[in-house]
């Protein structure tokens, strides 16, 4: 079987649809018969990455690659980049604005969640250029 590939464009700053692509992928994985455990891991990690794209990086695009062995999600934005990834990975670290904190974002738990719920998390970032986040969840 060929891998199933999905592509989504994500608007920056549009909170009303933020997370919608994660919902679509979740539904797709359910239809394909992936286990609840794998679906939960992908849903959490992809949601966090998708939201970060919207609140920190003005949107971008997402590519999802689904095979029976693993689900891979790549999120590319053209945002400001992450100056210190190690710091950003720490629980509780957040530069979220007050405006988005009022909506419930800014716990500084997004990146730690991505780490916790994936088998592989790769981040490449360039200041002023953007960030590429790659998430892999293996099917055990």
């Amino acid at each position: 079987m060929d891998n199933l590939k999905l592509h989504y464009d994500v608007n920056g700053d549009d909170f009303s649809v933020a997370g919608e692509n994660s919902s679509k992928v979740k539904k797709m994985l359910k239809q394909l018969g992936f286990s609840p455990d794998v679906i939960r891991c992908v849903a959490i990690a992809m949601y966090e990455a998708e939201i970060n794209m919207v609140i920190h990086a003005n949107g971008g695009f997402i590519d999802v690659d689904i095979s029976p062995e693993r689900v891979k999600v790549e999120l590319q934005d053209k945002g400001p980049g992450i100056p210190d990834i190690e710091k950003a990975m720490q629980e509780g670290y957040s530069t979220a604005s007050n405006r988005v904190r009022e909506l419930g974002f800014g716990a500084g738990m997004g990146l730690p969640n991505m780490k916790k719920y994936t088998d592989e998390l790769n981040i490449s970032t360039e200041i002023g250029k953007g960030t590429l986040v790659e998430l892999i969840v293996n099917v055990k």
Partner: peptide, 25 residues
């Protein structure tokens, strides 16, 4: 939201004062 995201389990009652659209996602 990102705490709820990892803590809320299926079928849970999630109690919050948040009222914006992101709680639905």
């Amino acid at each position: 939201l990102s705490l709820a995201m990892s803590r809320v389990q299926s079928d849970n009652v999630w109690i919050t004062i948040q009222s914006n659209i992101n709680i639905v996602a």
